[in-house]
Design a protein around this nucleic acid. Structure first.
Lengths: 145, 145
DNA sequence: AAACTAGATGAGAACTATTCTCAACTAGAA
DNA sequence: TTCTAGTTGAGAATAGTTCTCATCTAGTTT
């Protein structure tokens, strides 16, 4: 279900929550609406500020919990799936990363065929490099499950 | 210069630092060596633990500063360029992100031609989704510079 | 419609990751 | 050898995120 065209329609959002097994609370609807109407890829703090306008009593902790819940339900996505702490790599040859969403392990994957070319210019945006992350489950975690 | 084949050769690493305009301190060489010999994409804490083995007096703050310096010098890369806080997106249609490395703004970019197919299986790794991030400088930041 | 209950919320404390500050130190230049 | 800009170590400070728990409420049951 694409929620965007009807972002202002509370009942649709409520239904989406319920279908995902979440209670349709005013807080959740407000957070969801804020994300649906924003183009800024906001973080928790920004969502909090935005939502406070219509729900002045909401707490920051609730925003965090709500974002987690909406993400787990697949209604919202983290632009930064790897954002739990930094990770470094000294391998300077072009390669992709296979990120295990279960254990967090990151494997290098060199496959020139899969490598997208660095696009030169996209609109007014000047590209420098491209990163590709493949999210999934690694061999070890699959064995356990 | 690819440093990996000679990761044990201190003088090569020292030269690489100097060429990048950094003093070749034992701390830097140790951090660099730790990254070059690891396949784990370690974070600052892991590097710290590793490096302590040979340089017991090194401090965590130095590891952070060193990682920043090596990254700025291009000797090392952050696997997680967007890791300064979480960002969310409710746009569930497939698209890329154009990430401005100057101001941090993230733009959506829908371009089916550029979209890589989700690979089914890579070795033992079961892929679920692919993310593509294009790093560069946005129009607004280019105007200022 | 009223009662019930699992799940959700708010507030602040707690925790973790990261950055800052600054005096002491040292690599590399002169 | 001397000099100096850049670097380090230690701990304090800050920022981001999670936890705890008493209270509340959405949705279900009666």
């Amino acid at each position: 279900m694409d929620l965007r065209p009807h972002a202002h329609d509370g009942e649709r959002l409520a239904t989406a929550c319920r279908e995902a097994g979440l209670k349709a609370t005013p807080q959740r609807l407000a957070v969801l609406k804020a994300l649906l109407t924003s183009r800024e890829h906001p973080g928790p703090e920004a969502v909090f500020r935005q939502v406070r306008g219509e729900l002045s009593s909401i707490s920051l902790a609730t925003v965090y919990k709500t974002l987690d819940a909406l993400e787990a339900a697949g209604l919202v996505e983290r632009v930064t799936p790897l954002s739990d702490g930094r990770r470094y790599d000294a391998n300077r040859t072009p390669h992709h990363h296979l990120v295990c969403t279960t254990c967090g392990r990151i494997e290098d994957h060199e496959d020139p065929a899969l490598a997208p070319p660095v696009p030169p210019q996209l609109g007014g945006f000047q590209a420098r490099s491209v990163r590709v992350e493949v999210l999934g489950v690694c061999a070890a975690c699959r064995r356990e499950a």
